[in-house]
């Protein structure tokens, strides 16, 4: 019986298996929402050119939203895996080490200072602008935390987490000050960002986020072996002929770019970067060749499912997705902290 279960587990967790699950989830979730749509209507909307309310709902609201949830889930999850590899620590993730706060702060700065400008500009450009600022904030904080927490070639975990707390507090203070002076519209925008939501999903956002997250993730998969070697230590990686400095710079840049675009578009959706890679490592070990791709797929599946819950659980109203992921993620994080029982074998 165990052999059969193992076999099924292997199949499900293989990359083709995950792709099939992702596609199934994407199609199935089209049916769920505040407004009931029949199977035939969904197929009609996708395959026939027809006008109508359900048609519009599927093509312009549900489909882009599911795609965006998938992209953001993949982006956040891959970034988490990358940050854990870079810091050589399974507890690191963009929220805990303050990168999210840094990106958020810069996004708020751009909203407050360029609010009037953003209104005039076309949606495409203004969203890109906020995302660009979030990227710069993310880049700056990743770099800062990395420099602060690294001593003699080793990342000091305590310092890393404390630096994350300090940076988050600092960012929160400045954000608070801006929230205090912001007007009603800005306040709404900022609140939206801090809770995280995919409710504004549209094809414009997909056009910005899609290429960056997909190309970014594909570029990151090239560093799989380097990250494996860095797990043993930077010196060990160098002994294996890896140019650690260049690898780290590329990873920090690409990861910040992905985090920035995710936060710029959907606000703070926490803990995905922590939960998904951790879960996959428990099941399959820490081989980045598998971990990067599987994190992207499972992250996408997770956020599509979570977002479906968020938009249906208190329908017709919506729960901000950031609240939901934190509700799942925070206890999970505590569980990791408490779980000090040494493991002889992987699950």
């Amino acid at each position: 019986m165990n052999i059969v279960l193992d076999h099924i587990k292997e199949r499900i967790l293989s990359l083709p298996g995950l792709v099939i699950i992702l596609l199934t989830v994407m199609i199935t979730m089209l049916f769920f929402g505040a407004y009931t749509i029949s199977v035939s209507e969904v197929f009609a909307a996708i395959f026939e050119e027809k006008q109508g309310a359900s048609n519009f709902l599927i093509l312009n609201i549900r489909l882009p939203r599911i795609l965006l949830a998938g992209l953001i889930g993949a982006g956040l999850s891959v970034s988490g895996a990358m940050i854990q590899g870079l810091f050589r620590n399974p507890l690191a993730d963009q929220t805990l080490i303050g990168v999210t706060s840094g990106a958020m702060l810069f996004a708020i700065l751009s909203i407050v200072f360029m609010g009037s400008l953003l209104v005039i500009l076309p949606a495409f450009i203004s969203q890109f602008f906020v995302a660009l600022f979030a990227f710069l904030g993310g880049l700056l904080t990743t770099f800062l935390v990395y420099r602060i927490s690294r001593q003699h070639g080793q990342v000091q975990v305590g310092t890393m987490l404390l630096a994350g707390i300090a940076i988050s507090a600092f960012a929160a203070a400045i954000s608070g000050a801006f929230i205090y002076i912001s007007d009603d519209q800005q306040l709404r925008d900022i609140t939206f960002w801090s809770l995280g939501s995919l409710s504004g999903a549209n094809w414009t956002q997909l056009a910005i986020a899609g290429p960056i997250i997909i190309i970014g993730t594909l570029l990151l998969t090239r560093f799989d072996k380097s990250l494996n070697a860095i797990l043993l230590g930077e010196q060990e990686a160098a002994y294996l002929g890896i140019n650690v400095g260049r690898v780290k710079k590329s990873i920090i840049l690409l990861t910040s770019l992905i985090i920035g675009i995710c936060i710029g578009i959907s606000g703070i959706i926490g803990f995905i970067g922590l939960i998904i890679p951790h879960f996959l490592r428990l099941l399959k070990g820490t081989d980045f060749t598998y971990l990067i791709k599987s994190s992207a797929l499972v992250g996408a599946i997770f956020l599509i499912l979570a977002d479906t819950i968020a938009r249906t659980i208190i329908s017709p109203a919506e729960l901000p997705i950031g609240i939901l992921t934190a509700l799942i993620g925070a206890p999970f994080f505590l569980w990791i902290l408490v779980r000090n029982r040494p493991r002889k074998y992987i699950l």
């Binding site: 399974p90 890896i242 820490t286």
Partner: peptide
Amino acid sequence: AQRRAVLSQSVKVNFPVIVSDLVKMGTY
């Protein structure tokens, strides 16, 4: 790296790395 290998005094790994995955890193 193709000419020499180094056996360090100690290597600390914070992740569940499987032995065969680790040994395979030599092929990098």
